[in-house]
Every structure is written in C-alpha cells, then in structure tokens.
Design a protein around this nucleic acid. Structure first.
Lengths: 340, 340
DNA sequence: TATATTCACGAAAACGGTTTCGTAACGCAG
DNA sequence: CTGCGTTACGAAACCGTTTTCGTGAATATA
C-alpha cells in the first residue's frame, strides 16, 4: 500500500516519470487528457509527494523555525499563534524550538538549522543573549541564504529584520501614569538588563522620571532571574525595606504572580500602598485581585507581521528583508491596580 | 562557502564518499587515522549533513508533529513545553500545528503528514472531532507506520496510545466539594459534549449528584462555543435565570474569564452567591479575584510522558505503543472561589 | 514538396546522503 | 608457493523528486 510514489504512478499509467511529474504541476508540455488521467489516479491512490526528495532537489523545505525562550507565556503563545496562522495559509510548516532562556541552547539550535532544514527563522532572543556571535556565524555559515527575523526581543545592532513594540514610549507613558497617580518611588522589575527591549523600557522609565524632576537611582532597577523561588525572595526583600517602592512596573508577566503573592502575605494593599503595572498579555488581567493595569503588546499581530516579513524575505527573489524595522504600538490599559 | 557536503570533504581528503560517510559514523571499517582526518576536517569546515538527503535515504525524519487546538492555553502550552524538552533531548525536531478547534483543519493537517514528513504524531483532538475517519485513514494510508499518541483529548474507541488524566474521578471529587460547600444547583460548562474527556467528566459529575441523591437534569450541562462573545451571552443567560445555579464547574479554562466578568457586571458575589471550580492550569488562579479553585492537570508531565511513549513507539522495533493507556491524576486545589 | 515549428512525451542527470558489495593489499598458516 | 582471512577502502545503487534536453510525429509555412 505504502509504495505510491511517482514511479508507481508512472508505471500504472504507462507514462514516464517526468511526464507524471509535469502533469501534476500542470505543465503546458502535457496534453489535457494525460493530465486528467494522471491527476485522477494520483487522487485515487492518495499520492503524496515525498517532501524530502522535493526539498533535496529544490533546496527549499517549506518550513520555518520559531525560536523562543518559552511557550508558556501569554505573549509568546499569542505570537506563535499569529505566526502559525500565516504559515499554514502559505503552506509552510512550523518547527518550534524553546531556548528556556539559555544562551547555549539558542546557540545549539541555530547550529542545527544551518543545513537548510528551514527556509527562514523567526526568533526572540534569550535574556542571556549578550553575544551575537552565534547569530552572525549562522548568517555567514549557513549553506544558503536563510533570512532571520527578530520579533519583540531583537538585537539592535544587527542588520536583520525586527518587529518590535514601542518599548520606550509605552514604558514612559506607564511611568507617567504611576507618577500621576501619586507614586514617588517606582521600581522597574527586569529579567535582564542586557536585553534590548529592557534597555529601551528602562530609558523610557528614566525619561519620565527626569521629566517630572524625580531623581533616579540604579537601585530602582531590580534585576530578577528565571527562577521563580529566587524571584519571590528578591521581591520580598524589595517590599520589606523600610524605604520600599510605592509603584512597580514589571517588565515581564511572570513577575506579577510573585508580586501579588508577596503583597498578600505581607498585607501590602494594592493599590493603596503599592501600585502595579505589568507588561503583559494576560487575558486574565481584568479578573485578578485587584485587576491589573497592563501595557499590552499586540502579540498576535506581531507574530503575523513578523511572519509576513519573513515570507517576503524568503519568497521575493532579489529582496532582503533585513532592513525591515516595524514597530507596533502597545497599549496602556488602566485598571484597579493603579487606581486611587 | 556553502558547498561543504560529503563530496567536497571526500575530494579534499582524497578519499571516497563512502569512506567519509563511514568515518563520520565511526564505522569499524575505517582506520583510526583516517577517521581522525575526516572528523577534524568536517569540524573545521562546519560540515552539517543535509537532513533531506538523509531522511530520503533512511525514511526517518527525526521529527515529530504536535497537533493541538490552541497554543494560547495554559494546558497546551505547558504540555508542549514538556514535549519539546523530551524531543530536544532525543535529538528530535518538533513541528507544531494548530487546529483552532476545527475538524477540517485537523483533517487537512493529518493528510499533509501521511508522506513521512514526521516519524510520529502527538495530538489532542478538536472539540468538533466526532468522526474518526480522518485518523483511521491516516493510520491505514500513511506511507510508513507512523505512530500516533493522544494526549488529554483522546478518542476512546480508537486503538491508539492515550495519555490522559482521571477526568471521571476529578470531576466527581470537584462536584462533591461543591455539594459539601452547600451547592444545590450545579452547572457544568462544556465546550463539546462529544469530546471523550468531557463525557467522562460529565459522568463523574452525575455520579456525585446521584451519590448525594440530587436529581440531574440535562439543562445542567451548558454547552458553550469557541466564540468568546457567544460564550458571554450564554453565561449571562445562565446567570440571569431566576433559577440560576449556585455552583459552576468549568470544563475549560477559557470559560472562566466570561464567568468572572458576568458576575462582576451582574453583581453576583463569588463565592457567596456562586461557587466556581475550573479545570485549569493557570498559574494565576491564586491571584484572581477571588482566587480560583481549580482541578489542575499535570500538563507538563502529560506532555513528557506522551512524548516518551511516542519515542518508544518510534524507536523500539517490533513494538507498538498503541496499547499504552496512561492516566495521570489531576489535583483539586481549593481556593476562595468555593469557600463559605 | 521541403522546411520550420509546435506538441507531447521520455531519458537521464542532479540533489546529498547511506549502504551493500567487491577488492587490493597484507599477514599468516600449511 | 598456495590458500585463506582480515583490514581498509572504493564503486555504485538507491531514496523520490525536478528539470534540462532531446526527439519523433504532427502541423504550419514557404
């Protein structure tokens, strides 16, 4: 049953392999009747061309890779959803690789992808990714010219396509909102000060402070980790100092849970004693206790536009998508956690 | 630069292609010095064997497919994380396909996978999946013997591997908990009454009712949709009838948000007027308003064990994983939404 | 009628690996 | 010296496509 390939088709039809191949792709070289015969038998036998033979011959895999730190995160999962939808519509397959925020995994994954397994890559780098050698090496060493598109977590000084959000402005606006609500001592919780998007957010944060003539100290930037327990300790410490903040901006969704938990345990009232904003795509933000003010990124749209850019880079010959640099606006959604 | 393949290696080393190939896989036929020469040059040139040539020859792709309704769901994303981790450790690649709860997409995806693109499939079926023809046809028509493993949303009467949770018991326990807390009129919110896991949960639900001598009526099973707005209407209707329920079990995480929203809008107090339990893996359940009692599935472990079973089915020759039927226990985590 | 063009198809190379099988060279026993 | 086994390697088939090029027949053109 299994041996339905182009050769067996040809044999049954008394045709050559090349004729069958051409007939199946509706070539003008083949007569209409022959095409009909071929197509109908192919359908009847559920002929499905071998993808590896095709990829080997054409040097095209009709596959893209998505390399992200995590999938259990509302931003990334929504972005992936957007990517997958565009890919499926274009007839592409999607390989998923998780880096778990580990630079070494990211490096290893890129090495695995140099051999043409995918036609393009979309990635959001690790919070550990400071060096860019592995990406540069990928660009230079990959067999073919495999385009790479960054989404959200990009590396600024690389000449590659980037689809991001307005991190500077949105963090500035968020900080201003906290100040307007009466906050004097605001902390920014980060998971990596090296990450480009975090740098921009921190710049926006500082900018709002100076606009309002509030002094900035480095202690206001609290660097967290990828370990949930450690984060709880860090946040507990932060909220137990006598000079504790009265406002918090969380740079990543994951940090919201420990903040809420610590506040509950330490009986710190949100928003009276502490106002909170988070970068987050949580659909559950409105039903938290209290509901959470968020800077919500258009995750799904980011995924979709990034995918569209990538496919343009893959399919348009003579065109490189490297100079694409699209910035989509995030939205500050004000809820109870920053009310008065 | 790009043309570093086994042929160019052979040429530079003055060896034949076959010798290089064997040397690279450490064959006993090749002398130690030759192996060293080959390996060192391969490393120096970053030789990476072409995956399609290899797959074509070996009829193995070192790739599995994960077919799920959605990725922006805490259960599926955690399960995928578990799957990806095992796959990466085994040197496998993971193709992700989203069905968006559409039977037709599921069918189309399976058709695409018949040609050997993947060595195995893990899937959680659509809420629309009533027929099983597409899966049967896949099993019978696929080129090679591609194993399929169901996780969570399985089809009971198919002879395929299934990794699920104790849906009957956990729903029974949850229902009993609601009854213990004083609920008299409990509704179960479902997204598909045909889904095997839902049937089992409903059975568990009924079982608890009869144990407690409470009459059951079909109206207690409220079938929701995949459309968020419709769901809100359905739930609003449910909660505005004069004989409205005093307890709710949500069969799927997505339905929690509308329930909370409607309660907020209609000023129905949780848990005083309405107690709520949800099947959910939300890490944010503890910080909802009020915190949510959940039946939490071991999503990550399900993904991992399902992947392990699949790889056994793929790699162990003469072994079929079809009879694997593993049931992992869910946990009822009691929080404020069902307190008195 | 002779020639050019079009039509419809087939032969064979190519993609880059793996694997089977053959064999030259060598050592060793008889 | 002959026969045999071992060692280390190479030739070639094969996996299933795509595509270039060639060709015989039919048709159009001069």
């Amino acid at each position: 049953m299994g041996d339905v390939n182009i050769r067996s088709l040809a044999k049954q039809l008394n045709l050559s392999i090349s004729t069958v191949s051409k007939a199946l792709k509706d070539s003008y070289e083949i007569s209409i009747e022959t095409k009909k015969r071929v197509v109908s038998l192919a359908k009847a036998l559920h002929y499905n061309p071998n993808p590896f033979a095709r990829s080997l011959r054409l040097k095209k895999s009709k596959t893209i890779a998505v390399v992200v730190p995590d999938v259990a995160d509302s931003f990334f999962s929504a972005a992936i959803k957007g990517i997958e939808e565009i890919a499926q519509a274009k007839g592409y397959h999607v390989l998923l690789y998780l880096t778990h925020e580990k630079y070494l995994k990211e490096k290893k994954i890129l090495e695995e992808l140099k051999n043409g397994r995918v036609d393009g890559i979309m990635m959001s780098v690790t919070s550990e990714t400071i060096q860019t050698k592995h990406i540069e090496e990928f660009i230079n060493n990959s067999e073919y010219n495999i385009p790479v598109v960054f989404f959200d977590r990009a590396i600024d000084d690389m000449n590659l396509a980037k689809i991001t959000t307005n991190d500077f402005e949105s963090c500035q606006v968020a900080t201003q909102h906290l100040i307007d609500q009466g906050c004097k001592k605001i902390s920014y919780l980060s998971i990596s000060n090296e990450l480009s998007i975090n740098k921009k957010r921190i710049e926006g944060f500082k900018s709002a402070l100076t606009t309002n003539h509030i002094n900035f100290s480095n202690k206001q930037i609290v660097e967290c980790t990828n370990n949930a327990e450690k984060n709880e300790t860090i946040i507990t410490h932060l909220l137990l100092t006598e000079n504790r903040p009265d406002g918090i901006i969380a740079g990543v969704e994951k940090l919201i849970e420990p903040v809420y938990i610590v506040c509950k345990n330490q009986k710190i009232n949100i928003p009276t004693a502490l106002k909170i904003i988070s970068f987050s795509n949580l659909p559950y933000a409105p039903i938290l206790n209290p509901s959470l003010t968020t800077i919500t990124q258009p995750a799904y749209q980011i995924g979709q536009t990034a995918a569209k850019v990538l496919f343009k880079g893959i399919e348009k010959k003579g065109y490189s998508c490297n100079n694409e640099n699209i910035m989509l606006p995030s939205e500050l959604i004000i809820r109870e956690s920053t009310s008065n």
